[in-house]
């Protein structure tokens, strides 16, 4: 029994979806609507008391850390290996995933949620918003949601995130100038980890991510978007992400995989 409780095929929520589709592992997906704060509701808190998504439950074993869970999935299930055999390449894969998880993905999340989520809260009853905040178990998450709900993210923090994302785009472009994939000759968990937030950049950051400014990253984005497994995971969205992914494939000239 493999159950995945998650939101859209995006960032941490998307990692188990991308990973399981790439391995060809069947699973049951339970959609947790972040838009209506289902991840802070008692039903989900019974599965993960931290109120963070995704949660992956395999034969009664619950995992709530998405990158360690990807290592577990790759180890436990049949299907193409998603970690390089060479230990040095594995080190490289893990260092890139750390950089992504700790520095780059939070910066992108800050930018995107201030652009997309924060405006939804304008004009809502502050008492209702406070009540929603009260239900968030982890203080660091509560602080982040509070900034979103009350439009209190300092502009200099967003500027800092912009600069970090720009730096990451340069770094990944130079890694991909050397190798086909982020950890060498083969597609790996590092590619999933980065693609889970970078899939939309040709549209959301087209001034930095294009064939002139970052040709190697673009080559890699086309290769990722053409993979049937990643396409199938992107097709699982219930919101705007699936449509946006299709538009990006069209923009990149990537064909739709059969059956995706």
């Amino acid at each position: 029994m493999l159950d995945v409780y998650t939101w859209e095929p995006n960032a941490n929520s998307g990692k188990p979806l991308f990973c399981l589709h790439e391995k060809g592992v069947p699973f049951t997906c339970h959609y947790i609507d972040m838009g209506t704060h289902e991840h802070h509701a008692p039903e989900f808190l019974a599965i993960n008391p931290d109120g963070t998504i995704p949660a992956i439950v395999h034969d009664g074993f619950t995992m709530t850390e998405s990158t360690p869970a990807m290592e577990y999935i790759d180890e436990v299930f049949e299907g193409p290996p998603l970690r390089p055999a060479d230990p040095f390449r594995r080190w490289q894969m893990r260092v890139l995933m750390r950089f992504m998880d700790n520095i780059v993905a939070p910066s992108l999340a800050m930018i995107a949620s201030n652009r997309l989520a924060a405006p939804r809260f304008v004009g809502q009853d502050p008492a209702d918003l406070r009540a929603k905040l009260e239900r968030i178990p982890l203080p660091e998450r509560r602080a982040t949601w509070e900034k979103l709900m009350f439009q209190a993210t300092p502009p200099e923090d967003i500027a800092e995130s912009e600069s970090r994302v720009a730096e990451a785009i340069r770094r990944f472009d130079s890694v991909l100038a050397e190798d086909a994939w982020l950890a060498g000759d083969d597609f790996s968990l590092a590619d999933i980890c980065v693609f889970a937030t970078f899939y939309a950049l040709p549209s959301s950051r087209d001034e930095e991510v294009n064939d002139q400014a970052s040709p190697h990253l673009m080559r890699w984005l086309r290769a990722c978007h053409a993979r049937p497994g990643l396409q199938a995971a992107l097709a699982m969205g219930k919101g705007f992400i699936t449509q946006r992914a299709a538009e990006i494939r069209e923009r990149l000239g990537v064909s739709e995989a059969a059956g995706a």
């Binding site: 074993f61 995992m63 990158t67 360690p68 290592e71 577990y72 180890e75 998880d101």
Partner: peptide, 17 residues
């Protein structure tokens, strides 16, 4: 085993973050 290895990775990450 794989469950222990998950916990090893979980703590390795938690230390850092």
């Amino acid at each position: 085993d794989s469950r222990e290895r998950y916990r090893v990775h979980k703590w390795g990450k938690y230390v850092e973050t």
